[in-house]
């Protein structure tokens, strides 16, 4: 690699962060500004773009629940799905208040997790 000697200097990580991090990320936001500038608020094209963006964010959600990072990956999949389901149902039941859904899901997860840990400890 041509970069091999550069890896040891103090400033090289910051060049990486500026070019491979900041530029590589913000360029998509800038492209979005230019491409989105011509969209009409009531147009069919905008409905499609919203659908694509919404489906994409929904994909992030199911990935985070099905394939979580770190310690959460050690909980059973059924417990995570149930916690998310309980949270979303609570959100719908209580006038779509986000905080209610989040707290219900967390309470369910922690209760289930503690219960499972206690069961395993008892065996």
């Amino acid at each position: 690699m041509t970069d091999a000697g550069l890896g040891d200097t103090w400033w090289w990580p910051f060049v990486m962060i500026l070019v491979a991090g900041w530029l590589a990320t913000d360029v998509w936001r800038w492209l979005g500004v230019f491409a989105g500038g011509r969209l009409r608020e009531d147009g069919e094209l905008l409905i499609w773009v919203r659908c694509v963006a919404t489906a994409l964010v929904a994909g992030v959600i199911s990935k985070l629940i099905l394939f979580p990072q770190g310690i959460l990956a050690e909980t059973p999949l059924a417990l995570r799905l149930a916690a998310a389901g309980v949270g979303f149902s609570a959100f719908l039941l209580f006038k779509q208040r986000v905080i209610v859904g989040v707290l219900a899901a967390e309470a369910f997860l922690l209760a289930g997790w503690l219960g499972l840990t206690a069961l395993q400890g008892g065996l």
Binding site: L31, L56, V57
Partner: peptide
Amino acid sequence: GLIPAGIAVALASVRLMPMTMALMP
């Protein structure tokens, strides 16, 4: 290296473009 890292990060960030587009109007 700088280029492969930049490509990996850019791939992870493509999603920001349709999101920004939908927000602009």
